[in-house]
Design a protein around this nucleic acid. Structure first.
Length: 576
RNA sequence: CGGGGUAUGGCGCAGUCUGGUAGCGCAUCUGGUUUGGGACCAGAGGGUCGUAGGUUCGAAUCCUGCUGCCCCGACCA
């Protein structure tokens, strides 16, 4: 490709609304343009990257035996009603009507459609296992789209769905997909981790997430220092190592004016955060939703007690039978009703609601709590003496230094961007959509199902997040929009530079390289800056300085120095 | 959904408090000089100041409604 015939649209200035480096660089390099909140156009340069990622994904899926198909982006409501997700999925599902007022949605995922295909197409166990996939645009009406294409509403996803006669066959394909995903991310050249994950709203049993490690990542990952254990912090179980000490202090009410936070409480009392308990009031199951006008017979509130230095884990809390899912905090008026005070002074003593304590909070003795009276706290509190023994559960996020759940080593916490997720769904959807085939004995068996996703467009952003410097993007060769760029110096004045550049360009094309010839009539500095911003891995500079000796200059995007090479060695140099 | 911020040429911003001819940098176009790290000189084009209404002789500026966008948020208990 000749740069003069391409659309190169770089900017020197960073757009103010771009928060993270990948978003900034994608805009500055002209890879994407914003259309509306969470909606981005892929410009020619950016689309080249997307297509290369797609090609790698496609090759590895095909290699793993999956079959590509393409399903409609728009899906009829009936299927979603059949699976029960029309109600369950919530406002993230973009719903619309056609001219006959029939209800549809824009697919955020395709379990319903593929299961419908499976129940129509699959007639015998002999056709199993089978794994279908597509690479397609999805739409999820995110509450808060951000970070450009990292969390956009419309995005490209590779989604695969496998069908099996039993769970053992599903597990085999699940493992095959795990291997295929590793192959994809290895080929792209990403530093990633496969971690145990919560299967979330999609349902099912086992699931593994693939995360690209990056500080800007929205997920916390817990990894063991001694083993290959790795899990999303949402999922990582807390191994409780604390034991309760004896009560030595008296129950004492103290004045704590203007103290509302644990930090303020520590400052006011000199207590350590680990010696304080915080009491969170959340809405319980049966909390009226007020919208249908039905009578409210008192708020169904649940109190969760955690140690002051620990964070509540929403996912773990939601799993408790008394807690409403999704987790929501009690409203101010309900807090007043239940605790007779405002948030900031709540404590577990005397609350007439179910009290669930995190393991470590339940092991506290002589601890500090809110007094359920504004501007007062209580010190020297002990379970069993000052208040009943609580129900105990694992409610908190693991923290750095917690023991690894597999018993080997301690946990480190790192941040990651989720780029892939594979699930053993089991029979959730095939039961709902009555998908079964006869087995060897002729008896109908509900199919077992797996699903496997890769966020293609997010991979592009994550790759930049992990590969950049102060000059711009540093693509790995596998997904670079161009593998090599030729920069002629002063071609307008020098016929020999021009001729040598053209010859080199043709030679690289013939050798099968994805090559860009920067034939724009620009000063060298501009071309260098543009090509570094765009992130092309290899650069060949043709100039009158070196041409008489049949030499040119080579520079790798990741190196700070150039080297002079023989003109004839150019192709060999960038092949390595 | 709640809170905060913001909206002025393609991009980044000033001007708003204190109402009086809409400005700067980058980018673009023309001509010339330049040509190994985002050049210089001269000239040019481009803005219903988000939108609807109000106050006023006069509104980017003051008032009201609406909308878009960005950030923060269920951790404060």
């Amino acid at each position: 490709m000749r740069a003069s015939q391409f659309h190169i649209a770089t900017t020197k200035e960073t757009p103010t609304d771009a928060e993270i480096v990948s978003h900034q660089l994608m805009l500055r390099a002209g890879l994407i343009r914003r259309l509306a909140s969470g909606l981005y156009s892929w410009m020619p340069l950016g689309l080249r990257v997307v297509r290369k990622i797609e090609a790698i994904v496609r090759e590895e899926m095909n290699r793993a035996g999956a079959l590509e198909l393409l399903m409609p982006a728009i899906q009829p409501a009936e299927l979603w009603q059949e699976s029960g997700r029309w109600e369950k999925y919530g406002p993230e599902l973009l719903r619309l009507q056609d001219r006959h007022d029939r209800e549809f949605c824009v697919g955020p995922t395709h379990e319903e459609v593929i299961t419908d295909i499976a129940r129509r197409e699959l007639r015998s166990y002999k056709q199993l296992p089978i794994n279908f996939y597509q690479i397609q645009t999805k739409f999820r009406d995110e509450i808060r789209p951000r970070f450009g294409v990292m969390r956009s509403r419309e995005f490209i996803m590779k989604d695969a769905y496998s069908f099996h006669i039993d769970g053992a066959s599903l597990s085999e394909t699940f493992d095959d997909m795990h291997t295929a995903y590793c192959a994809v991310f290895d080929r792209i050249g990403l530093d990633y981790r496969a971690v145990d994950a919560d299967s979330g709203s999609i349902g099912g049993a086992k699931s593994t997430e693939f995360h690209v490690l990056a500080n800007s990542g929205e997920d916390g990952l817990a990894t063991s220092s001694m083993s290959d254990y790795a899990a999303n912090v949402e999922k990582a179980a807390v191994v409780c190592t604390t034991t309760r000490g004896d009560a030595t202090q008296a129950h004492t009410v103290i004045d704590t004016p203007k103290v509302h936070t644990i930090a303020e409480l520590c400052k006011a009392t000199g207590a350590d955060a680990a010696q304080c308990a915080k009491t969170l009031l959340v809405n319980g199951v049966g909390m009226n939703n007020h919208e249908d006008g039905s009578a409210v017979d008192g708020p169904k509130i649940v109190a969760l007690v955690l140690r002051g230095d620990h964070e509540l884990n929403d996912i773990k809390a939601e799993k408790h039978p008394l807690v409403q899912s999704p987790l929501t905090f009690a409203e101010a008026k309900d807090i007043r009703t239940v605790a007779k005070c405002d948030a900031g002074s709540i404590g577990p003593i005397g609350l007439d609601v179910p009290i669930i304590a995190d393991q470590d909070a339940a092991n506290l003795s002589d601890f500090v709590v809110g007094a359920n009276e504004n501007d007062k706290h209580i010190t020297g509190v002990n379970w069993g003496r000052d208040l009943p023994e609580p129900e105990v559960a694992d409610l908190r996020n693991v923290v750095e230094g917690d023991p690894s759940p597999d018993g080997k080593g301690l946990l480190n916490i790192v941040r990651g961007v989720e780029v892939g997720h594979i699930f053993e769904l089991g029979t959730t959807y095939s039961e709902a959509l009555k998908t079964a085939v006869p087995d060897e004995s002729g008896k109908n068996q509900i199919l077992h199902m797996g699903c496997y996703g890769i966020g293609v467009t997010r991979v592009a952003a994550a790759a930049i997040e992990q590969n950049h410097d102060d000059k711009g993007i540093q693509w790995t060769r596998a997904i670079a929009p161009f593998e090599v760029v030729i920069v002629p110096i002063n071609a307008a004045k020098s016929d020999s530079v021009k001729a040598a550049s053209e010859k080199l360009y043709q030679g690289l094309l013939d050798a099968g390289f994805d090559v860009l010839l920067d034939d724009r009539p620009l000063r060298p500095g501009v071309m260098f800056a543009d090509m570094e911003l765009i992130g092309i891995p290899h650069r060949l500079v043709v100039s009158d300085k070196l041409l008489p000796e049949n030499k040119l200059e080579y520079r790798n995007r990741r190196e700070s120095d150039s080297e002079v090479i023989d003109y004839a060695d150019a192709i060999a140099r960038i092949s390595g």
